[in-house]
Design a protein around this nucleic acid. Structure first.
Length: 459
RNA sequence: GUGGUCGUAGCUCAGUUGGUUAGAGCGAUAGAUUGUGGAUCUAUAGGUCGUGGGUUCAAGCCCCAUCUUCCACCCCA
């Protein structure tokens, strides 16, 4: 029989037990933080109707969607005219909607918007939800970038209050403090960016300007200028933009400069005011992590309209590990206008990579089983199974070696699984109603009763 | 989607200008030790050299394609 070489799709990964323990540590910290701030869990399907996803993430996003081929004979439904074009590359896009009607979710925000609209009559607003699930993107994998990865989203929808933004800042601080990662929380506001575009006389070029500005710390002022030219921004506008890009100094000074710039931009002033409110509160709350106003922070997703947030680890070279913002009308496209929301997403896989690199996982995460009962044979089984049941009832993670293997082999098993204790109950011990409890770290062994063993093994 | 890069035993890696039967360490298995793991010693097993073509008397090594890994761009968690 010929066997095939096992493999998994590009950009996906298996998680071994040692990794899962660590991943679960992250999810636990995140989940507990979300819950303590009063958010409720939801889940949505891995796949959505393609019509729900298409057009929500820009042209780039559409390309990165994983599409699911219709089941059955998916070529059946094709209009006659097109049936001859099955292989024609130029028509693939056109064909797609006939042969694929579903796609894997690209993020958790758009499915959430769909969820809110669909369940609007059952929900209590403002609705605070969290959602921890995988998402898929047909991107080229590289460092910190996978085709399947987990996002941990918290959003509150149906409230305009800036207190929600403040709360998200607190959640970020709580989560990363809990994980032991030092981070910088960067804040900006889309209205400020719109104000800048207005003030330099290029209000219609907002997206182009923000995409270019976003790269400032990465490629430098000169190349950003080049890119602005390429994107069709006039020299006059670029000249006006230069001093804003290089704006440094204290937050207060940045605000003052921008205020002056925004004399004729109501949008810009509104954005500044929002930022100010949020930042003042965050300052008063004395977070453990630093936050800063960064007007080069743009973020690609087109649906943001107010506050934008991005979090980076301070001690590791990794893209953003958390990001989000406010979107005034995400549900409008699904038929529920005027519903403002704000939310953030933690990238669990990147957080894992950062914590791994910085050795931030607690040592104590490893051992799962606390005690192994050695299997001596059929005669001892009855006694051992009862013993095992007793241990488990007392909440002590325990197992019996299932096969009647050599003691040496069973001890090795315990050793390799990092099980700290082993119980040996052979003929002699059973006769006396006792057992031998061995500490695998020190090598010490003592004889005691089952009751005593449970006491010793309890934390 | 564009450009580059990596792939040899379970793992980490050697492998000369193309030249006999592809090696090491670790790990695995068995034994030294029939109720005791980690240390030591001995022995054993384990390879379509990512895959498919091509060049050559001869390919792990050269060429082409493809898959995968990692990296940069685009974009992003």
């Amino acid at each position: 029989m010929s066997s095939q070489k096992p493999s998994i799709p590009k950009g996906t990964r298996d998680f071994a037990p040692a990794e899962m323990v660590r991943r679960n540590f992250i999810f636990d910290v995140v989940r507990k933080s979300f819950q303590v701030f009063g958010y409720q869990p939801i889940e949505t399907p891995a796949m959505e109707n393609l019509s729900t996803l298409m057009g929500k993430y820009g042209d780039e996003g559409d390309k990165l969607l994983f599409k699911i081929l219709n089941s059955g004979n998916y070529l059946d439904g094709l209009p006659d005219k097109e049936s001859g074009l099955r292989d024609a590359d130029s028509r693939i896009q056109h064909l797609t909607k006939h042969i694929a009607e579903k796609g894997l979710r690209y993020d958790l925000t758009v499915p959430f918007a769909r969820f809110v609209v669909q369940h609007q009559h059952e929900l209590v607003f403002p609705f605070k939800r969290y959602q921890i699930q995988p998402v898929w993107r047909a991107d080229r994998p590289q460092k910190g970038r996978y085709r399947e990865f987990f996002q941990c989203d918290v959003d509150v929808i149906g409230s305009n209050s800036l207190l929600n933004e403040v709360e998200l800042g607190q959640i970020i601080d709580t989560v990363f403090t809990g994980l032991g990662i030092n981070v910088l929380i960067r804040l900006n506001n889309r209205k400020v960016l719109a104000g800048i575009a207005e003030a330099i006389g290029a209000p219609d070029k907002l997206t182009d300007i923000t995409v270019a500005m976003d790269k400032l710390d990465k490629i430098g002022l000169d190349k950003v200028t080049d890119e602005l030219v390429e994107r069709g921004i006039s020299y006059e506008s670029i000249e006006k933009l230069q001093p804003i890009l290089t704006l440094e100094g204290k937050i207060k000074e940045k605000f003052e400069t921008l205020e002056a710039l925004f004399i004729h931009s109501e949008t810009g002033r509104k954005g500044l005011e929002e930022l100010q409110v949020v930042m003042r509160h965050l300052k008063d709350l004395e977070l453990r992590n630093k936050f800063d106003f960064d007007l080069t922070l743009a973020r690609g997703l087109s649906y943001y309209t107010g506050t934008i947030i991005e979090v980076k680890a301070l001690d590791a070279a990794m893209g953003s590990i958390c990001g989000g913002g406010r979107y005034d009308d995400l549900t409008g496209i699904f038929g529920l206008p005027g519903m403002s929301g704000v939310g953030i997403s933690f990238g669990a896989d990147r957080i894992y990579d950062v914590m791994n690199e910085l050795n931030l996982f607690p040592e104590t995460l490893q051992a799962a089983t606390r005690v192994l009962i050695v299997n001596f044979g059929t005669e001892e089984e009855k006694y051992c199974l009862k013993l095992l049941a007793g241990l488990r009832q007392a909440g002590i993670p325990s197992e019996i070696y299932p096969d009647q293997a050599k003691i040496k082999k069973q001890m090795e098993y315990a050793n390799r699984k990092n099980i700290p204790f082993v119980i040996l109950a052979g003929k002699d011990e059973i006769e006396r109603g006792e057992l031998a409890l061995k500490d695998m770290r020190s090598g010490e062994q003592k004889t005691c009763t089952p009751g005593e063993a449970i006491k010793l093994l309890s934390w």
